[in-house]
Design a protein around this nucleic acid. Sequence first.
DNA 1: TATGGTGTAATATGTCACTAGTACACTATG
DNA 2: CATAGTGTACTAGTGACATATTACACCATA
Lengths: 118, 118
Amino acid sequence: MTMDFSRDKPIYSQLVDRICGDLIKGNVQLGDKLPSVREYAIESGVNVNTVQRVYKELEAMDLTETRRGQGTFITSDEKRIIALREEMMYQLADNFLTSIEALGFSKEEMVHVLQNRG
Amino acid sequence: MTMDFSRDKPIYSQLVDRICGDLIKGNVQLGDKLPSVREYAIESGVNVNTVQRVYKELEAMDLTETRRGQGTFITSDEKRIIALREEMMYQLADNFLTSIEALGFSKEEMVHVLQNRG
DNA sequence: TATGGTGTAATATGTCACTAGTACACTATG
DNA sequence: CATAGTGTACTAGTGACATATTACACCATA
């Protein structure tokens, strides 16, 4: 079940995004075990090291805890997930606003465009 | 006057973005001549080949016209600039909406965040 | 026509991010 | 202790990016 990845961004980064999305959306439960690196590697059609990097990033973000020989587990700290949600929301918003400014658009104008799209 | 570049994106790409921004904001006039590749290279502390690539991209976007032996000139077609403005606006909006969806945020929620920031 | 300014092309070099292959180290469990 | 499952470390290949250098082709102009 090889997943499809966009080519304009590293695979490991896309996987991190995907997992973060699942965490935020509640698609995975607190304390759940993630697939092993090999398992996930096969599932997504990537190399083990790529998955390892994903898990490393997640751990650096305090979203997971990895135990050698046992596996990688979602944090049990719900506050962390809630915080993540806010962080990502703000970061998304700020990046957007930065781009808007760089191109000389007005916030109101863009909000209007947003509402007439999707 | 070497410019500062972010490390998470190719230099040539950042230069293209910058020039596009200037075009949209009207910081440069229709038909204006851009600096020569060598000139611009020195100005921005970059190699000639990098600038060449920038000019090539701009021409591929029909934003400039390069005349061998004379230089590279901004298009005189105002419609092209106006179209560019729309293109970039829509692309920005769509990328934003895609991210929102991937993270399970609602459009209304994000608009609210936008208005309380910056 | 000579000169200097333009863009263009080709090649070599170095760096870095990404990914993969392989082997190693730890843990649980029979 | 043996085995199978886990994460981890090392090494190498690939490609994108940027640089440096050199040479070429075109144009304006003195």
